[in-house]
Nucleic acid binder design. Structure first.
Length: 339
DNA sequence: GGGATTTGACCGTG
DNA sequence: CACGGTCAAATCCC
């Protein structure tokens, strides 16, 4: 990592600064939720915001009071999404505001598909990509991209043939940080959850009793995705978090189920596509709103990636907030990242 | 044997 | 014509 040699003190200062920034962003997010159209989702988001703020408060206090909190090597990717580091995906995102349309066979990106770009961290050493996103993907191609150090991998939903699911995604390791991946989702999942992949996902994340997961799949997926960001961006030596370590959610899926290195079949990364046109409602994907949201998540990812286990534990409780790992992420979370 | 991955070729767009 | 997205045969893996 480029900044791996950062001193402890500098790292801590940065951590604090990042957390403060994240908190500020979250508060802005809260402000954005004040023009709701869906009370249920807004409820959830407010709750999330409240918890995140409390969490960051605690983290900041912890960081300030524990000088030896950070190890130098813990400073991972400090790569804000808009830091100027050119991403080969950036151009793909440039026309992502265009309305979805069924594309001809090729050139989805230029065919103005609705898409969502997400920057996802993977566990260190993960060769293929970031963590599973609960969907089952099948790789159908890989290309060397001009100006990019790493090839871009193309995935489509495993159920494309059986169910005609049009969802696809592109995964590309960022140039700057080998642990960060740019993921672009295209299309929406139309496959049914009772498929083999859903079964696999269920194995990773058993069903939850939490009733609010029924309220608004979009909001829940969004929150889930945020939780994923919080846990994904960790180095390989993840603490073996178990449901027992999460008092509010014993017996539930560990968040690490989404953070595990992807060495398996599931090349998944994070979330999945959102129905086009979802942008522009109370999630505020347009204008500064989307940028803020993405900043929130990216900043959290950057921060959490630099946390020692002690603080990672501080972050884990997002899972304890009651968000279900098993709900369909394929419908909402990317609305946070809709570009 | 079936499903997933790899990889070179093909094709559309700019 | 270059580039990027997809196809499809070959290969791998369980």
């Amino acid at each position: 990592m480029a900044d791996g040699g950062e001193s402890c003190g500098g790292g801590r200062a940065r951590l604090v600064s990042e957390l403060v920034r994240v908190q500020d962003l979250v508060r802005r997010l809260e402000l954005q939720l004040r023009a709701p159209s869906d009370p249920a989702s807004v409820d959830l988001c407010r709750r999330l915001v409240h918890d995140i703020i409390a969490l960051t408060d605690r983290s900041i206090s912890t960081a300030r009071s524990s000088p030896d909190l950070l190890f130098p090597a813990a400073a991972v990717s400090h790569q804000p999404p808009h830091s100027g580091a050119p991403s080969p995906l950036s151009d793909a995102g440039s026309d992502q505001h265009h309305p979805f349309r069924a594309s001809p066979r090729k050139r989805k990106a230029t065919a103005r598909w609705a898409s969502q770009q997400v920057r996802v961290a993977a566990a260190a050493g993960a060769a293929e990509g970031p963590a599973d996103d609960g969907h089952s993907w099948r790789k159908y191609g890989q290309k060397d991209i001009l100006g990019a150090k790493h090839p871009r991998a193309y995935y489509r939903c495993t159920h494309r043939n059986s169910q005609g699911c049009p969802a696809t995604k592109q995964v590309q390791r960022t140039d700057g940080d080998a642990n960060l991946f740019d993921v672009v989702y295209h299309g929406d999942h139309t496959c049914r959850p009772n498929s083999s992949s859903a079964a696999a996902a269920a194995r990773r994340a058993p069903p939850h009793p939490h009733p609010q997961q029924q309220h608004n799949p979009h909001a829940q997926a969004a929150l889930q995705g945020l939780a994923a960001r919080l846990t994904v961006a960790t180095p390989a030596a993840l603490p073996p978090t178990t449901p027992e370590s999460c008092p509010a959610q014993r017996g539930a899926a560990s968040p690490w189920s989404m953070a595990s290195p992807v060495g398996s079949d599931s090349n998944g990364v994070s979330p999945c596509p959102v129905a086009p046109g979802y942008c522009g409602d109370n999630w505020g994907c347009d204008g500064a709103g989307a940028g803020d949201l993405q900043e929130v998540v990216s900043a959290f990812a950057a921060v959490s990636s630099g946390l020692p286990p002690a603080l990672e534990d501080e972050l884990i409780p997002l899972e304890c907030f009651g968000f279900d790992q098993s709900f369909d992420m394929g419908n909402a979370m990317p609305s946070f990242f809709y570009q």
